[in-house]
């Protein structure tokens, strides 16, 4: 079951693809691929939202939600929003080879993202708190709350790693006005993570009748 014989093999081990896409063509495909990936992930988050609306309900009262502290949730949401704005600044800066703004903005994106992540893990999840607000074992509330925030947190962590890598490569001078696909990809991904939270925040904290979880 051979693929290629004879013709062009065994020269210097280097084969050249006559139909190889140019860098610009590859970027166009990359962009479409990344958007398709985002679209694919929509189904993941839709499934979690479906679980939320399916389980957090009462036959009579309709939609329910666990009673959680509103203040910190709003603050973390705003922090993520600010990080999104800095990401946009960083992307515009790299498109204009304005490395100083790029550097500062991306660092701020990272810091803001980290604050969001730590806020979710240590405050909302209550790791490190003596009396957590909610536990994974608290019926469907705990299960779906940790599933939604946990799945989002995994994406935040991936995004933070992505931001860190792009920050380093940007400072090594790998991006130019013509080719800053790495930054653009990072920006699309990071905004996507923010986009998911735009739907998760009201779904978890605002929609439905608040129910107090006993024992916390």
């Amino acid at each position: 079951m051979a693929v290629a014989h004879g013709h062009d093999d065994h020269h210097h081990g280097e084969l050249h693809n006559p139909m190889e896409p140019t860098r610009q063509e590859q970027i166009v495909m990359n962009r479409f691929g990344l958007w398709l990936f985002c679209f694919s992930e929509v189904f993941l988050f839709m499934a979690l939202l479906a679980a939320r609306f399916y389980l957090w309900r009462d036959p009579v009262q309709g939609a329910l939600r666990p009673e959680l502290e509103q203040g910190p949730a709003l603050i973390f949401t705003c922090v993520l929003l600010v990080s999104s704005w800095f990401m946009n600044r960083a992307e515009v800066a790299s498109a204009n080879e304005d490395m100083k703004t790029f550097n500062q903005s991306l660092a701020m994106t990272f810091v803001m993202g980290l604050i969001f992540l730590l806020g979710v893990i240590f405050y909302e999840w209550g790791l490190g708190l003596a009396h957590p607000h909610i536990l994974p074992t608290d019926g469907a509330f705990g299960a779906v709350f940790f599933a939604m925030t946990g799945m989002h947190a995994i994406h935040v962590i991936t995004g933070l790693i992505f931001v860190a890598i792009v920050w380093r490569n940007g400072n090594l001078g790998h991006y130019s006005r013509e080719d800053h696909w790495g930054v653009e990809a990072c920006a699309i991904y990071w905004h996507y993570v923010d986009l998911v939270w735009i739907f998760f925040y009201p779904a978890i904290y605002l929609i439905g009748i608040g129910v107090h979880i006993p024992g916390h």
Binding site: N88, P202, I207, G208
Partner: peptide, 22 residues
């Protein structure tokens, strides 16, 4: 507390993010 209004607001925010930021 209006679920419909909240979802509409979220959709508006999402449209802004996708259009400008992404």
């Amino acid at each position: 507390p209006s679920a419909v209004l909240l979802i509409l607001l979220a959709v508006a925010k999402a449209a802004l993010v996708m259009n400008v930021f992404m």
